[in-house]
Amino acid sequence: MPRLSNIDSEPRGNVTVESFGLADRTLRAVDLAAERGERRLFEHLHFTLSPGHLLQVSGRNGSGKTSLLRIISGLSRATHGEVFWGEERIRAVDGGTGSCLGYLGHHNALKEDLTAQENILFAVRLGGGTPNADSAISMLERLGLAGYEDLPARFLSQGQKRRVALARLLLQRRPIWILDEPYAALDVQVIDVLRHSIETHLAERGMIVITTHQAVDIDGDCHNLHLG
């Protein structure tokens, strides 16, 4: 608990708008349709997301929330339609789709045999970034994982793993975040941390697409998209 107050005491916006350098771009979905199996999940789906805005995708189970998020991330192909980042198609963004968005799915994408710190540093290196062990440690500390950075991920609890994945997302510094049920399996404490990160990201003119079961009140420009 005391570490949580650490975050609040941090000055907001140590990552500035300019550091993304893409603040004028929008994320657009044009006439999207998706199928799973034989079932049409949704069709004629349009939206435009401007910098600093959040899109919450809601709908019952199986309504295609995860499919939509995977299509936006370029992981799945839409049956019809296209997603654009600025004027570029999301699957063909210059420098790779991952250069504009960070994706946090159902899996934490952590290697059980690597420590929290190694996991984060590897992800940064793989993304073409320069790893900085100090910033990784301080990020883990901010998320309340001080003293855990040298522990293999398999010894961490579910909530702690989620925090490591979150630390990775924060360090990758992508303008768009795609978060699929980020609150699942999180305790109240971490939910606060996450909400704070989301608000900071929006304040820095980042964009977020999120699915969640719980209603979480977030301070910022929030839009809702209901599927099904």
Binding site: G74, L75, G98, Y103, H106, H107, A109, L110, L126, G127
Partner: peptide, 14 residues
């Protein structure tokens, strides 16, 4: 594939 790192690899610039 199981732990999701393969998914993250699809998003890498390489």
């Amino acid at each position: 594939y199981r732990d999701g790192t393969l998914e993250q690899m699809l998003l890498v610039p390489e």
